[in-house]
Write a protein that binds this DNA or RNA. Structure first.
Lengths: 199, 199
DNA sequence: CTAGTCAAATGAACGTCGTTCATGGAGGCC
DNA sequence: GGCCTCCATGAACGACGTTCATTTGACTAG
């Protein structure tokens, strides 16, 4: 019995994540509805709660996919430019981050827009994926600062990632600032080139 | 008749904003409830809609206050250090921004966490307040780049504001990165000092 | 002072949401 | 084949923002 049941649960889980991902991509995090989801998946609303703790758990699963796609995309882009210097490679990474956010705005925003009840805490793989992103940045950064220890590299990595993230986040938020994409790229390059060209 | 009515509306409006502000401060944007608000204000739920278009309008009013408080706080702090150089003044501004966000995390987060239906657009005073913040930064920045034109200053201002905003936002988000406050300050100083010490 | 008028205040009702739980039925075990 | 267990089910629940028919009360005209 266990075998058949587990398989069905796993299939339903994947189907729900796929449908939810499409919904978030199309209309944003706020448009997810348990009933619509169950309807599209061909199951009862209650079935969702046999597979996920709650809607937040489902969103976290969607974000897990997005994190992997983002990491793979950025890695691929920078791997194709391993011959360039560390500063140019960091700019490449940041542009790829901007590109992903710009191409998948709703999915990308969902990464940082999950509301979690206080008791629930972030799954370990969430921080793992963020660490993987950090490590993509810290590699060229270590070349810029060959004598820096791990703690210093970690601080500079977080600082640069957060800076680029802020530029992308506010730049894409048309409501607040609304800046053309090429000007966002100019801002990113301005920060990274000036920061990493100095010791 | 009009006089008395308008006065009561204005009083109710202010009372509602004050109560909502306290509620957001205490428990965050997501804890605002129309019924609880009406209960505390001593009015009917429907009365809220005689004064505001909807809950989003009320939140925007709260954010308006927060924007003014933030602007006044940052201005006061930097005004007390007008004797220092432009780079040090920019670090002072950024530290003040961090301090405000850290002291009023829920109100500060509400500034960027409002959900608005697509048709509604940002009130003009919202962008005005943001422009006021920008101008606080662009003043010392113009001293760093005396030969830069307005468009270039605008781009660098947005880039630096967004960078600091990103560092503060991700640094305070204990869920995602969670960094001690002094390390956040180190990140800010790292970015600003390196960016503005170069041409 | 009284009657009339009309906008503003009211709160029950509505539609929708995430979540739960008693129930019915499908599927493994003897 | 009969029993029993366990899971899918979807109606029900409580809470939410918002609406609207009704009541209220302030102001004016006579």
């Amino acid at each position: 019995m266990a075998r058949n049941t587990d398989k069905r649960r796993e299939e339903l889980r994947e189907r729900l994540v796929t449908i939810a991902e499409a919904q978030v991509r199309a209309s944003g995090l706020g448009s997810l509805r348990a009933r619509a989801l169950a309807g599209e998946a061909g199951c009862a609303v209650g079935a969702i709660y046999n597979v996920f703790d709650d809607m937040t758990g489902l969103i976290l699963a969607v974000n897990g996919r997005t994190f992997r796609h983002l990491g793979a995309f950025v890695s691929d882009v920078v791997d194709a430019r391993q011959d360039t210097g560390p500063t140019d490679r960091m700019i490449t990474i940041a542009f790829a981050y901007l590109r992903f956010a710009s191409d998948n705005p709703t999915l990308w925003r969902a990464l940082f827009g999950v509301k979690m009840s206080a008791d629930r805490d972030v799954p370990a793989w969430y921080l793992d994926e963020l660490g993987r992103l950090f490590s993509i940045i810290s590699t060229p950064l270590s070349e810029v600062y060959p004598q820096a220890d791990a703690s210093e590299i970690d601080l500079k990595t977080r600082a640069l990632f957060s800076s680029v993230h802020g530029i992308v986040a506010l730049g894409l938020e048309r409501r607040i600032s609304g800046v053309p994409q090429d000007r966002i790229e100019m801002m990113i390059e301005y920060i990274i080139r000036n920061v990493t060209s100095r010791s």
